[in-house]
């Protein structure tokens, strides 16, 4: 039986009816076509599906849609302040070469947003720890760590 729910995503309210077993990832991607959030493994191991729920980073593939009713959900689509500007984290990812195939990017950015909300001046080691739940096969992580460090500085200045 489908359950009626309301989800608040990137500030918008969506009224939906979902089967109780469907994950937040499925609802985001398949029902709402918010496809910036990826699905890399479906078992919470790769981090590509990371979104923020009430400001905390979670694996959307392991989160049931019903669990997050009434909570503030933020996806990569809600990261930039507008359609023609970028969030400082996104800007840094672009400038530092932190993006190759791009499939891990949105998850990395969301975890970076969470990390920087908790710690505005992380050390390199803290950034690496903050990314340890994410896998990337292209970049060797180095430019991603660089980008987050750069974003932290830019965000502090502004």
């Amino acid at each position: 039986m489908k359950h009626p729910i309301e989800l608040k995503i990137n500030g918008d309210i969506y009224s939906l009816a979902v089967d109780p077993w469907r994950t937040l990832n499925e609802v985001l991607r398949e029902d709402l076509h918010l496809t910036g959030t990826k699905l890399g493994c479906g078992s919470g191991d790769c981090g590509a599906c990371t979104v923020l729920v009430d400001g905390r980073s979670v694996s959307s593939c392991l989160t049931l849609a019903l669990e997050v009713q009434g909570k503030e959900i933020q996806t990569v689509e809600g990261l930039a302040p507008s359609g023609d500007t970028l969030h400082p984290i996104q800007e840094a990812f672009v400038e530092k070469g932190a993006i190759q195939c791009g499939f891990c990017t949105s998850g990395m950015e969301m975890s970076a947003a969470y990390l920087l909300s908790q710690n505005s001046s992380p050390t390199e080691q803290e950034i690496r720890e903050g990314l340890s739940g994410h896998l990337c096969r292209c970049t060797g992580y180095i430019q991603i760590v660089d980008a987050i460090s750069d974003a932290a500085q830019k965000m502090k200045q502004s």
């Binding site: 990569v76 990261l79 990812f93 672009v94 993006i99 791009g102 990017t105």
Partner: peptide, 10 residues
């Protein structure tokens, strides 16, 4: 990258 902004935005 040519596609960096699109990828950064999801």
């Amino acid at each position: 990258r040519n596609d960096a902004v699109a990828k950064a935005r999801g």
